[in-house]
Simulated scan of single mutants.
Amino acid sequence: MDKYDVKKDRKALYAPSAKDFTVVDVPELRYLAVDGAGDPNTAAAYTEAVEALYGTAYALKFASKRNLERDFVVGPLEGLWRAEDPAAFLQRRKDAWEWTMLIALPEWITADTVADAVAATAKKRENPALALLRVHVFTEGPSVQILHIGSYDDETPVLERLHREYMPDNGFAFNGDHHEVYLSDPRRTEPARLKTILRQPVRSAKTV
């Protein structure tokens, strides 16, 4: 049985250089998603969202393998981040952050299958975030990305270089939420070795 792996199928999106910014065209993709707000280090809603995503993703994996004879690797945790004041990111004012946490879905997983997996997960453990879980489909299009190696709190210099140098120098403007892909498990990886993809959807600054 072949095993689908989004990181291999979409290698250009999940294996960027750590040396230079690169431009990719991100197609329409489907995700499990939970929305929330607050400091990811302290907000209970964030922990509940991540647990709901992983619990449901693994329930989907087992159900797909059992019922459809199609297996897949559960993708990495991803996050869309936004704030009313964009400076909140560079200043690491985490209480002001809003987020949508994500895990990519194979194309054959339907909304009904997701609903069944949520119900199965809820029977094992009560989690209020399961009621918020949804299928999110969106297209980021042209985006600039880079691989950051190090602590999440050390992303600021990279983001400043992206926002204040690379984007203006290349005629880009913001065109969507800041997107992060967490390739490392922070429970098992020391902060200095964490690998995180930093992605920013862009458009031409000349576009009205």
Rank of each mutant, 00 (worst) to 15 (best):
L80G: 03
E84Y: 08
V73T: 11
P76K: 01
P76M: 02
P86Q: 08
E84A: 12
K61Q: 15
G79H: 06
D71R: 10
W81R: 06
S64D: 07
A59Q: 15
R70D: 03
S64W: 05
D85H: 08
A83R: 08
A88L: 07
G79F: 02
P86M: 04
R66G: 04
R92W: 11
V74T: 00
W81I: 01
S64G: 13
F72K: 00
V74F: 04
E84I: 02
F89K: 08
L60S: 04
R66L: 14
R82C: 10
N67E: 15
R66P: 06
L80S: 04
W81N: 02
L60M: 11
R70G: 01
G75T: 02
A63C: 11
A88T: 05
L68C: 12
L60D: 00
N67W: 11
A63N: 14
D71W: 11
L60W: 05
K61I: 06
R92P: 00
A57D: 06
P86H: 11
L77M: 05
R82S: 15
K61T: 06
L90M: 09
N67F: 11
G79W: 04
G79E: 07
A88G: 03
A59P: 07
A88I: 05
A87I: 07
S64E: 10
L68M: 13
V73S: 02
E69H: 14
R66E: 13
R66F: 11
T56M: 05
F62H: 14
F62A: 13
A63L: 14
G55I: 02
F62K: 15
G55E: 03
Q91N: 12
F62N: 15
F62Q: 15
V74K: 00
F72H: 04
L77E: 02
P76C: 10
R92K: 13
L77D: 01
N67M: 12
L68T: 12
N67L: 14
A83H: 07
L77W: 01
K61L: 13
D71A: 09
A83M: 09
P86A: 02
A83K: 08
R66T: 06
A59W: 09
A57T: 03
L68H: 12
